[in-house]
């Protein structure tokens, strides 16, 4: 099967490591899917959580983060695989910190919206 050029360099890593990397990719993909489902669910199930424009913007931001996360998770998988192929240290990623900030902020915003709802 056709593979990108970087996939033909170095040595195929131990299957345990490459499968762990794949499962990490899938876990991020599920996080992205949860953001998408959450965005549409909030829009439909809690229409009075905030003024319409605010609600639509918040839900769209969540969905956009979901889309970005799907792309970042592939890039992360590829970078990790490349590092494994060359026996290098796994690259540092801001993804964990970034997603922690995103989820905390979302929780805070929605908590405030729920508490201040008339």
């Amino acid at each position: 099967m056709h593979q990108p050029a970087w996939r033909r360099t170095g040595k195929t890593p131990d299957y345990r490591f490459s499968l762990a990397n794949e499962r990490t990719f899938l876990a991020w993909v599920r996080t992205a899917l949860a953001l998408l489902a959450g965005a549409v669910a909030i829009d439909q199930l809690a229409p009075e959580i905030a003024p319409t424009a605010v609600r639509i913007i918040l839900c769209m931001v969540l969905a956009l983060i979901g889309a970005a996360l799907a792309i970042v998770s592939y890039r992360r998988w590829a970078h990790q695989e490349l590092a494994m192929r060359h026996g290098e240290e796994l690259p540092h990623s801001w993804l964990l910190l970034g997603m922690t900030v995103v989820v905390s902020l979302a929780a805070l915003v929605f908590a405030i919206l729920i508490l201040t709802r008339p």
């Binding site: 992205a32 899917l33 549409v40």
Partner: peptide, 11 residues
């Protein structure tokens, strides 16, 4: 998943 996100934004 990016395509699904576009569908979600549309919805």
């Amino acid at each position: 998943i990016v395509a699904l996100a576009i569908a979600a934004i549309g919805a």
